[in-house]
């Protein structure tokens, strides 16, 4: 059952709406939902001050779907710590979307600001627009970033995506900014567009598939051969089964992939970057 939130007007000062989660909504009437707390600056406000609330609420988290409409760029922390259910956002949305998410599904038709999916440990996020900096990253000082879950971005992504990533899967259809997968130590990333500079700096473990162009890699990564790879097809087929629109053209399982391994600045150097040789022969030497 769906609860529909329509933003009445764009707030002049950003609001923190971490109370917008299926867990907080489940088992409440629309009136009770309207009284959930959101913060605007130092003021504690009610959800209904900012949103028109309609639809039908559900008893359980699993049955709860929240649809949010409006220019939500000044609304932060939607779906923070979410543990089940669904959130669908029709428009652009502010920082910390789905941060520390445990389970459930978030879809966004527009773009998201920084720290979307930060430190998430499960669930599924689908963003049709762009994502800002620190997508699926760890917060400052945290040694652990994303610990699980699946994230699909149909647009471009900013800098330091997947900082400290430990586990999980990220696929990006567009381009990715600088220093992606810094200090990564597990998990898998597929970048269909161009991979920005300094990818995987200080990464010790994990896998990144660059389906598009890679202009440069850190000097502390070493070339480790070009060949067809037994498992690239596994990941490509998985992506294709979930988001066929992410792949511009078919990639044959017999295509050759240049492998780079690093970061040799670190004691452990098991980060693997696979790039399509046909687009990146300049890297392989």
């Amino acid at each position: 059952m769906t609860v529909l939130l329509s933003l009445k007007q764009v707030p002049n000062i950003p609001i923190e709406a971490d109370s917008i989660t299926p867990t907080a909504f489940a088992g409440k009437t629309l009136a009770q939902i309207g009284k959930l707390v959101v913060m605007q600056g130092r003021n504690s406000c009610e959800l209904r001050e900012f949103f028109e609330i309609t639809g039908e609420s559900a008893d359980s988290v699993e049955e709860t779907e929240i649809v949010i409409r409006g220019d939500l760029r000044k609304v932060k922390q939607i779906g923070k710590g979410m543990n089940g259910g669904r959130i669908r956002i029709e428009g652009d949305v502010g920082m910390h979307l789905g941060a520390e998410m445990i389970a459930g599904r978030i879809t966004v038709t527009g773009s998201v600001d920084a720290y979307a999916g930060a430190e998430m440990s499960g669930g599924n996020i689908q963003i049709e627009g762009n994502a800002g900096d620190y997508l699926c990253a760890g917060y400052r000082g945290s040694p652990d970033g994303m610990k699980g879950g699946r994230v699909f971005i149909a647009g471009n992504v900013g800098n330091e995506m997947a900082l400290h990533m430990r586990k999980g899967f990220i696929a990006v259809k567009g381009n990715v900014g600088a220093m992606a997968a810094t200090r990564m130590k597990g998990g898998s990333i597929i970048v269909c567009g161009e991979l920005g500079p300094r990818a995987c700096i200080e990464a010790t473990k994990g896998m990144l598939f660059a389906l598009g162009k890679v202009s440069s890699l850190p000097p502390t990564f070493k070339y480790s051969g070009s060949s067809e790879r037994e498992f690239t097809g596994y990941y490509i087929r998985y992506l294709k089964s979930r988001r066929p629109d992410f792949l511009q053209s078919d990639i044959s399982p017999s295509e050759k992939w240049a492998k780079f391994i690093g970061d040799f600045a670190e004691a452990e150097s098991k980060m693997e970057i696979y790039t399509r040789l046909v687009l990146n022969s300049h890297l392989a030497s």
């Binding site: 037994e230 498992f231 097809g233 596994y234 490509i236 087929r237 399982p253």
Partner: peptide
């Protein structure tokens, strides 16, 4: 090939 997990 399209029925296997790795496309081979």
């Amino acid at each position: 090939p399209d029925e296997t997990p790795d496309g081979r």
